[in-house]
Each structure stands twice: as structure tokens, then as C-alpha cells.
């Protein structure tokens, strides 16, 4: 498992385009927002948590199609499926690698971009915490979407259509935590819901992803 994780991480780091791309996209989206809605500090401060969440979600989504598709094309996915490691673990490791290369940098970059968006000081902590809790769910759900569409040519657009609705609960609760935290409201309920969604997705979805992948591989 660790070997597979290291392989995926090394591929993402060295093959180019994987690691920094999601981060760069996140940056671009956040820069685009003030340019499109106007630079008023009060307006930016009120939408900052939502924009950061949406940007992180889109950056996750964009990097999904390389998650399994490359391994599918060069056949290493077939080898992984016949390996002694259960496919469920393979899928989990893939999701973990995706999170380390995409989700974690986004979490770390969010406070910096928060400055650009005039995020209130009280909000920084909650944006980081909510992203830290929520991005693993995004990676795991995304892996399910990637497994569904892995056999398709040009499945990228279809995958976005499939994955976006599945992202909605995570987005709603995550952005709610960040928004409430920024204005100093009580955040316990959405925070617990967000953590619950993450935990349940991590625990259960790899089974669905592996089952779907087996169907695609037969």
C-alpha cells in the first residue's frame, strides 16, 4: 500500500502538471472573483468563505480525470486489480494520493488567498478547519466518479456532471462552517455534519468505487 502511495505521489510530482496545477487553478479562480464582482472590501469579505470553498471544489474536480484514467490507459490498473492488494485498498490509496497532492495544498493555500479576498480575521481558522475536514470527502467522492467514467473516451465532462451533485452536501456544510465562523456564529452543527459526511464517505465509498471499477475492468 505504501509502495503504491509513494508511486502515485512520485508520478504526480515528477510527471509534471499534476501537483501545482490544481493549486494554480485555485489561485486563478480566486483572482477572477474580485475582477468579476468588483473590489468592494465589504462584499468580498462576505463572499470570501464561499468563494474559497467553490474554488477548492473546482480545483479538486479538475484533477480527478487523471486520477485513474492514466493508469487505465497504460494498463497498470489491470495489474493493480490482479495484485494481492484488494481493489478497495487500491482505490483508498489513490484517493489519499489525490488528497495529498490536491486537497492538502489547497488547505494550506486557502489562508493566503483569504487575504486577497479580505476574509475577516476570525474566519481564517474556520476556513482552514472546514477545508481540512471537507477535502478528504471531495477526494473520495471524486474517486467514485472517476471510477464510474474511467472506461469512457472523453469522460471528463460527464464526470463533472456526475460528481457535482454528489459534492453538494459537502459544499453546503463546509461553506456554512466557513461562513458562520467568519461572522462569529455558532458552528457546531454544520461542523459535525461535515465531519460526519467525511468520515462516512471515507469508510463506505471505497467499496462502491472498487465495485464500479471491477465492472469497468471486466
Amino acid at each position: 500500500m505504501i509502495a503504491l502511495l509513494m508511486r502515485d505521489l512520485r508520478l504526480a510530482l515528477r510527471a509534471g502538471g499534476g501537483f501545482g496545477l490544481g493549486l494554480a487553478f485555485f489561485l486563478i479562480v480566486t483572482v477572477m472573483v474580485p475582477l468579476s464582482v468588483g473590489p468592494q472590501p465589504a462584499l468580498l469579505a462576505s463572499i470570501a468563505p464561499g468563494v474559497l470553498w467553490l474554488g477548492a471544489l473546482l480545483a479538486c474536480l479538475l484533477s480527478l480525470d487523471r486520477l485513474l484514467a492514466l493508469d487505465w490507459e497504460d494498463g497498470s490498473l489491470d495489474l493493480l486489480a490482479t495484485a494481492p492488494l484488494p481493489l478497495e485498498s487500491v482505490v483508498s490509496v489513490k484517493a489519499l494520493a489525490h488528497w495529498i497532492t490536491t486537497g492538502l495544498p489547497l488547505v494550506l493555500a486557502a489562508p493566503v488567498l483569504g487575504v486577497l479576498l479580505n476574509l475577516p480575521v476570525s474566519g481564517f481558522k474556520w476556513v482552514v478547519i472546514s477545508l481540512l475536514l471537507g477535502t478528504p470527502a471531495l477526494s473520495v467522492i471524486g474517486t467514485f466518479g472517476a471510477a464510474l467514467t474511467v472506461g469512457l473516451k472523453r469522460g471528463g465532462l460527464l464526470m463533472s456532471l456526475l460528481v457535482m451533485p454528489l459534492y453538494l452536501p459537502t459544499l453546503i456544510f463546509g461553506a456554512e462552517v466557513a461562513r458562520r465562523g467568519a461572522v462569529g456564529m455558532e458552528i457546531q452543527t454544520p461542523l459535525l455534519m461535515l465531519a460526519g459526511i467525511s468520515a462516512a464517505s471515507i469508510a463506505l465509498l471505497p467499496f462502491a468505487s472498487a465495485a464500479v471499477l471491477r465492472i469497468n475492468l471486466r
Binding site: F144, L148, L162, P165, L166, L168, P169, I172, F173, E176, T189, P190, M193, I197, L205, A208
Partner: peptide, 18 residues
């Protein structure tokens, strides 16, 4: 997709309620 989607559709329902 229908199975997983059902769970998430139900979750979305409660999420937007909230």
C-alpha cells in the same frame, strides 16, 4: 450511481433544509 446518488440526494435534502 443510483444507489450512491440516493444517499447523497437525501443528504442534500437535509443540507439545504439546514
Amino acid at each position: 450511481l443510483c444507489l450512491v446518488g440516493s444517499v447523497f440526494a437525501l443528504l442534500s435534502r437535509y443540507a439545504v433544509n439546514f
